[in-house]
Simulated assay, not measured.
Amino acid sequence: MRRWRIINKDLRVNEEIRAREARIVGSDGQQLGIMPVKEGLRIAMEQGLDLVEVAPHAKPPVCRIMDYGKYKYEQSKRERDARKKQRVINIKELKIRPGIEEHDFQVKVRSAQRFLSDGDKVKVTLMFRGREISHAELGHNLCMRFYQQLEKQAIMEKEPRVEGRNMIMILAPRPQEQVKGD
Results as ranks from 00 to 15, higher is better:
residue 173 P to N: 06
residue 109 V to Q: 06
residue 2 R to F: 10
residue 49 L to Q: 08
residue 105 F to V: 13
residue 110 R to V: 07
residue 132 E to D: 03
residue 81 D to F: 13
residue 142 L to G: 05
residue 118 D to S: 08
residue 139 G to H: 02
residue 78 R to G: 05
residue 32 L to F: 08
residue 179 V to T: 13
residue 132 E to S: 00
residue 124 V to G: 00
residue 50 D to F: 05
residue 107 V to R: 14
residue 82 A to E: 14
residue 59 K to R: 14
residue 2 R to Q: 07
residue 119 G to H: 01
residue 54 V to R: 01
residue 6 I to K: 10
residue 47 Q to D: 13
residue 8 N to H: 09
residue 135 H to M: 11
residue 121 K to S: 08
residue 101 E to K: 15
residue 148 Q to Y: 10
residue 109 V to K: 02
residue 59 K to N: 12
residue 56 P to A: 07
residue 182 D to K: 14
residue 125 T to M: 07
residue 1 M to P: 06
residue 40 G to W: 02
residue 125 T to Y: 00
residue 151 E to G: 02
residue 140 H to I: 11
residue 3 R to F: 12
residue 41 L to M: 11
residue 88 V to F: 08
residue 151 E to I: 13
residue 7 I to M: 13
residue 152 K to C: 04
residue 95 K to D: 09
residue 14 N to D: 10
residue 163 E to Q: 05
residue 119 G to C: 02
residue 38 K to V: 12
residue 103 H to E: 14
residue 142 L to P: 05
residue 128 F to D: 02
residue 10 D to R: 07
residue 77 K to Q: 06
residue 79 E to A: 09
residue 66 M to V: 15
residue 143 C to R: 00
residue 110 R to T: 13
residue 116 L to Y: 01
residue 103 H to Y: 01
residue 12 R to S: 08
residue 86 Q to R: 14
residue 157 E to A: 11
residue 116 L to A: 05
residue 66 M to N: 03
residue 159 E to L: 14
residue 92 K to V: 12
residue 136 A to F: 08
residue 14 N to R: 02
residue 126 L to P: 00
residue 117 S to I: 08
residue 80 R to F: 14
residue 30 Q to I: 12
residue 76 S to V: 09
residue 78 R to Q: 07
residue 136 A to S: 08
residue 128 F to S: 01
residue 174 R to M: 12
residue 3 R to Y: 11
residue 162 V to K: 00
residue 26 G to Q: 09
residue 76 S to E: 15
residue 90 N to V: 09
residue 181 G to N: 15
residue 102 E to K: 08
residue 2 R to L: 11
residue 9 K to Q: 12
residue 39 E to F: 05
residue 30 Q to Y: 06
residue 123 K to Y: 01
residue 29 G to E: 03
residue 62 V to A: 01
residue 30 Q to V: 14
residue 152 K to W: 06
residue 151 E to P: 00
residue 173 P to I: 08
residue 11 L to V: 13
residue 180 K to Q: 11
residue 154 A to H: 03
residue 116 L to Q: 06
residue 65 I to Y: 01
residue 150 L to E: 02
residue 87 R to W: 05
residue 89 I to G: 03
residue 150 L to N: 01
residue 81 D to K: 14
residue 110 R to D: 15
residue 104 D to V: 10
residue 68 Y to E: 11
residue 144 M to D: 09
residue 40 G to Q: 06
residue 58 A to M: 03
residue 68 Y to R: 07
residue 73 Y to W: 12
residue 17 I to Y: 00
residue 35 M to V: 10
residue 8 N to I: 04
residue 181 G to W: 13
residue 52 V to M: 07
residue 37 V to I: 04
residue 135 H to V: 04
residue 178 Q to V: 04
residue 2 R to W: 09
residue 88 V to Y: 07
residue 35 M to G: 05
residue 51 L to M: 04
residue 61 P to I: 10
residue 171 L to E: 01
residue 62 V to K: 00
residue 54 V to S: 06
residue 80 R to W: 10
residue 77 K to V: 10
residue 156 M to S: 04
residue 108 K to E: 15
residue 85 K to Y: 11
residue 106 Q to C: 09
residue 33 G to Q: 05
residue 3 R to D: 12
residue 49 L to D: 05
residue 158 K to D: 08
residue 113 Q to Y: 04
residue 71 Y to S: 14
residue 174 R to G: 00
residue 4 W to F: 07
residue 178 Q to K: 15
residue 135 H to T: 05
residue 137 E to V: 09
residue 166 N to H: 10
residue 54 V to N: 02
residue 93 E to V: 13
residue 171 L to D: 00
residue 15 E to C: 00
residue 81 D to S: 10
residue 165 R to Q: 08
residue 120 D to P: 01
